[in-house]
Write a protein that binds this DNA or RNA. Structure first.
Lengths: 337, 337
DNA sequence: ATGCCTTAAGCAAACGTTTGCAAGCGTCTC
DNA sequence: GAGACGCTTGCAAACGTTTGCTTAAGGCAT
C-alpha cells in the first residue's frame, strides 16, 4: 500500500495521496485535534515519520490567524551607534528564549533604531508577531504609550511609572538606588557620585532613589556624571573624571559594566578599592564576581523577570487585563565596598 | 470616493474594495512589483498609509514559498544546564541581527539542548526558516554533517576542519593559539597551562595551536586544565587549581571570561599579573579592557565574522556552492602579559 | 427489514497574499 | 480604416494548512 522509497513529501496532500486518505484526515492525525480512529491516526503518524514530514508552520499559522512568534525588541534610542554587548541582555534573552520555547513560540529578535514615531506600530501591523516584549523604554516612552493604547499584547522590561500607559515588568529601581545609598552611608562614605545616563528611565530612577535615601546633608553634594553604559564610553568618562582630580569615596554605577569601568579607572589612578573608595554596581551580571575586588552590586532577578514578562504577555494575549509587576532588588555585598 | 473614517482595513481585499480596484492592483501597488500606472500606484499607497495598512508578511511569505526568517541556533550540547551569558554571543547576535535586517530578513533565535540526532532536521523541516546559522559546533559535529549533506542554506560559526562536511566561518583558532604561545615565549614564560574544554572543537584547536607553536622542550610540560567557560565554573576551577599550589608563569584561556576568572583567582592568591605570571584571553570582548590589569587577548573579528556568515548564507541560498571562510586572529597586547 | 445513533472520514471553503494570463482600450502605422 | 502594439487592470488559481458540515458505514433496537 505505502511504498518505502523515500519519495519527497512536501505537503499534507502528498502524504494523503500516499496514505490513501484525505488531507483532512492527515491534518487531524498530525495535530491530534478532532475525532479520528486510533489506528488511522497511528498509521498516518508513522507514515509521516517514515517520510520525515513535518507540518508547515507558516501555513498552519496563517490558517490559524496567528504568527507563532513573539518579538523581542531592543530599542537603541539612546546609545545610538553604540553596540550593546552588556551581558545583562544576553542573560535576559536566554531566559526569554527558554520561556517562549516552553510555550511553543518562536522568538523574533530585532534591534531597532527608532525612526520617527511609527516604527513600533508599523512593525506590529505587518502581523509578523503575536506579541511584543521590549527590553528597556530607552527614550521611547511616548511611542510605547501610544501603541499600548490600542495594542494589548505588549509588555516592557523597564521602569514603572504612573505616567506610563504601557505595562511593565521591572526591578524597583528607586528601591535599588536606596539600597546602594544606605550601604555607602553605613560604610561612612560621604563624597558620592552616580555614573549613568538619566535620560534612560531606569537609570533616572536609580539615581533618584539613591539621592532620596541619603541623609539630607549629603543630598546636595552628590555628583551626577553622565555616561553611556558601554565599556568604551564609560571607561573614557571615568578616566577623564579621575584625571580631572576628582577624589570621591563612594561611587554608584548605573550598571555593573559601568562599575567595572570605574574600578579600572580608579585602580589606574592609584586608588585602592575598597580602601580609598567604595564602588557599587547594578544588575549582578555573572561576571560581577570576577573583578578584583569582586563587585558589590544591586542584583536584579533577571530570570524571574523574564518569566514574569512572558507570563504577563500570555495573560494579556488571552484577553486578561493584567497589570505591571515590580520586582524587589537585593543588595549583594562583595568586596568593592 | 474614499471615506476618511478610520475603518478597520485587515487585508488587501478590504483596501481594494475601498479603493475601487482589484486585489491584484493593490498588491502591485504595495509591493512595487509588476507594471502599474504611476497615479494608481500612488493613490493606493496613500490610501494604505491613511488606513495604516501593512501587507501581512506571513501570507506573503506563504505565497512566495519562503519564511522570511533566518534561524540563529545556539546549541548547548556542552555546558548543559549552564546559562551562557558570554558577551561574545551578544556581540555576535547584535551584528547578525543587523546584517539580516539589512536584507529584510527576521532573526529567529533559539537555544537548543540537542536531544537525539534529529533536532536539527526536525527544526528545518517545519519550514519555519529559510536558512540556519549555528553559533558553535558544540559537540554536534556529526549532526551538522548529516544535515549539511542534504540542506544547503546552513552555515556554522566555529572551527573549520577537513573532517567536517558542513560549511563554516570562523577564526583560525590554531593560528590564534600560536599567537598566544609565541607571545608567552617572548615574555620568557615557561610554566604554562591552558584552561578550557577541549571537547569543544574551537577550544581544542586553540589548545593544539598553542602547544604546537611552543619550543619542543616546553611542549610536554604544558598543563591542560578542563573547565567550562561560564564565569561560575571557571572561577571555581581556577581557585581550586591555585589553591592546590600550582604556580604557573603563563596562562592561556579559552575565552576572555575564563581569563578574567584566572586573573581574579591569581590575585586572590597573592600573585601579581603580569609580575608573577602572564594571562592571555581569547575573543577581545568589549570588557577585556576593563580588568585590572587590562587583558591581553587574541582578538576575533566578530563583526566581520557575522557579516561573512550572512553573506555566505545568502550566497548558498541563491544556489551558489560557496565554501568555508577562515578569519585571521590578531593579538592584542594589553597589560596582563 | 427499517430507522436511529455513533463513529469515521471526506469535501470544500477559508486564511491573505502573488502572479500568469487575458481582456479592455487607446494610439500608432501604413 | 484596420490591424498591431503597449499599457493598465482584473480574474482566478495557487501557496499548505484547518475545520464546519456532510456523507458513509456499521451496530443495535424495534
Amino acid at each position: 500500500m505505502d511504498d518505502s522509497k523515500p519519495e519527497q513529501v512536501k505537503s499534507i496532500a502528498d502524504l494523503a495521496r500516499i496514505g490513501g486518505v484525505s488531507v483532512s484526515t492527515v491534518s487531524r492525525a498530525l495535530t491530534g485535534k478532532g475525532a479520528l480512529n486510533k489506528d488511522t491516526r497511528e498509521r498516518i503518524q508513522a507514515l509521516a515519520d517514515r517520510h520525515g514530514f513535518k507540518l508547515n508552520v507558516a501555513a498552519q499559522n496563517l490558517r490559524l490567524g496567528r504568527s507563532g512568534a513573539i518579538a523581542v525588541l531592543l530599542p537603541l534610542g539612546h546609545e545610538r551607534g553604540q553596540h550593546l554587548s552588556d551581558p545583562f541582555f544576553m542573560v535576559m534573552l536566554g531566559f526569554l528564549a527558554d520561556a517562549l520555547a516552553d510555550r511553543g513560540y518562536d522568538l523574533l529578535l530585532s534591534r531597532v533604531l527608532p525612526q520617527g514615531d511609527d516604527w513600533l506600530d508599523s512593525f506590529i501591523r505587518t502581523g509578523r508577531t503575536d506579541g511584543v516584549i521590549i527590553i528597556g523604554q530607552s527614550n521611547q516612552s511616548a511611542v510605547l504609550d501610544r501603541t499600548a493604547a490600542h495594542y494589548a499584547p505588549m509588555v516592557i522590561w523597564g521602569e514603572q511609572s504612573a505616567r506610563n500607559a504601557h505595562i511593565t515588568v521591572g526591578t524597583d529601581n528607586q528601591a535599588g538606588g536606596a539600597l546602594a545609598a544606605q550601604h555607602l552611608v553605613e560604610r561612612g562614605r560621604r563624597r558620592l557620585a552616580f555614573f549613568g545616563n538619566v535620560a534612560v528611565p531606569e537609570f533616572a530612577a536609580r539615581y533618584q532613589g539613591f539621592v532620596a535615601a541619603l541623609p539630607a546633608e549629603l543630598r546636595d553634594t552628590v555628583e551626577l556624571v553622565h555616561t553611556h553604559i558601554t565599556p568604551q564610553a564609560s571607561l573614557e568618562v571615568a578616566a577623564a573624571w579621575f584625571a580631572a582630580g576628582n577624589r570621591p569615596d563612594g561611587l554608584f554605577a548605573a550598571s555593573d559594566v559601568v562599575a567595572m569601568s570605574l574600578l579600572s579607572a580608579a585602580t589606574d589612578n592609584g586608588l585602592s578599592v575598597p580602601g580609598d573608595l567604595s564602588i557599587i554596581g547594578f544588575d549582578d551580571i555573572p561576571m560581577a564576581r570576577l573583578t578584583s575586588p569582586p563587585l558589590t552590586t544591586v542584583a536584579q532577578d533577571i530570570e524571574g523577570g523574564a518569566r514574569q514578562l512572558v507570563d504577563l504577555l500570555f495573560r494579556r494575549l488571552a484577553g486578561e487585563d493584567a497589570g505591571s509587576i515590580s520586582i524587589a532588588p537585593r543588595l549583594v555585598i562583595r568586596e568593592s565596598s
